[in-house]
Design a protein around this nucleic acid. Structure first.
Lengths: 206, 206
DNA sequence: GTGTGTGAAGGGTTTCACAGCA
DNA sequence: TGCTGTGAAACCCTTCACACAC
């Protein structure tokens, strides 16, 4: 398989969400122009992105919304249910247990852990907060495939190491620090501070 | 001023955080190599990014951590206190009111609003949830400079329109939809679903 | 010797523009 | 006619490699 760029994958996620909206609105067909408009990019970009994976459209017509949504879902691997574990039961961890966008796409949170004894045992939705002392065991027994790191900066690398030891190969990290992991493990970052600082840069320079 | 790329700005944010750690550890000097290692990139990239804004290092020596942190802070506009308003008092909105990374860098949340009458009047930290009916008035009177949109998808564009009307020129959007705003308004996106889907793509293709 | 600052080269992504099919 | 699919061109960003300053 050809090497697909990170940005193409991220845009596919956006197309997927736009198509979801169109399907809900009972729109059967969409052109690359409309899709581009919805996502704030160019139509050539949309067509090029899709062309890496096949030919999904009809010339002169556009794309069938339902069919394209399904195809992109398959490309992104949204057809199976992924087992997700959250480490850190603070504000962010809690908010994510109940995050609608995860549920809707089949990301199922089955485990939440914290190192604070005061939090262990607490209930969040239908989950009970477990102690991180048992991280390796529980991550394995729950067959966690994607782990979300939502712990303070100083603890993040240690948690990541433990997750790797437990066999996790995909990590979504909310701690503001770059994680060192083996090359076969993938890490993605989510850090509102970076985004807000780039807004601050923009405001300052205009 | 030269056109600086988005990715350079995002990396400056990361350098800033790494320098913060070094300063806390009482490390006086850092090389582009070390900084690169901390952030998982190359040293040439670090030097090139910094070179757009001036010459901050000493050849043969490296950079003074405190001085460089201060300079990057100035570049990013982190020297003043920014007034931030949050629209949407759900899980995400609540989590952000008390987000340490924002506070530490001088992003001060002074307003939180929701359209749900049941939530209006509730207290979150030292703030009271206000009704979005009064959005324009309150955003203006609070002199909000950066707005955070944390409302459901269907309401996001309407909220954005109101924010623009109220004079806001920087928006951090957590709703999974692309916002249409005039060219003088900057929008940044934060969407964990996109990151987790790119992890899902990675797991599926390996 | 060490590590920065930077033109030049290289690589990758986006945009252009048009042939081709519905 | 309308809109896709796609090579080629344009553009942008990253990496190289080395002169130069400490």
């Amino acid at each position: 398989m050809k090497k697909i760029s990170e940005s193409t994958i991220r845009r596919l996620s956006k197309y997927y969400r736009s198509l979801e909206q169109l399907v809900e609105k009972r729109t059967d067909t969409v052109s690359s122009d409309q899709l581009a408009e919805m996502d704030g990019i160019t139509s050539a970009q949309v067509r090029k992105d899709l062309s890496f994976f096949g030919t999904f459209g009809k010339r002169g017509l556009g794309y069938n919304t339902k069919a394209l949504k399904k195809q992109i879902g398959e490309i992104l691997g949204l057809v199976k249910e992924w087992r997700v574990g959250i480490i850190g039961a603070g504000n962010i961890g809690r908010a994510l247990v109940n995050f609608g966008e995860f549920k809707k796409q089949g990301f199922k949170v089955t485990l939440i852990m914290d190192s604070d004894p005061a939090k262990v045992g607490e209930r969040i939705q239908d989950l009970t907060v477990e102690s991180t002392d048992r991280l390796t065991t529980l991550v394995k027994s729950h067959k966690i495939e994607i782990a979300i790191v939502a712990v303070p900066t100083h603890a993040a690398q240690r948690v990541a190491d433990d997750l790797v030891k437990a066999g996790v190969r995909a990590i979504l990290n909310f701690a503001p620090i770059s994680l060192k992991v083996p090359p076969n493990v993938q890490v993605k970052y989510e850090n509102p501070a970076i985004e807000i600082e780039s807004l601050s840069y923009f405001l300052k320079n205009s």
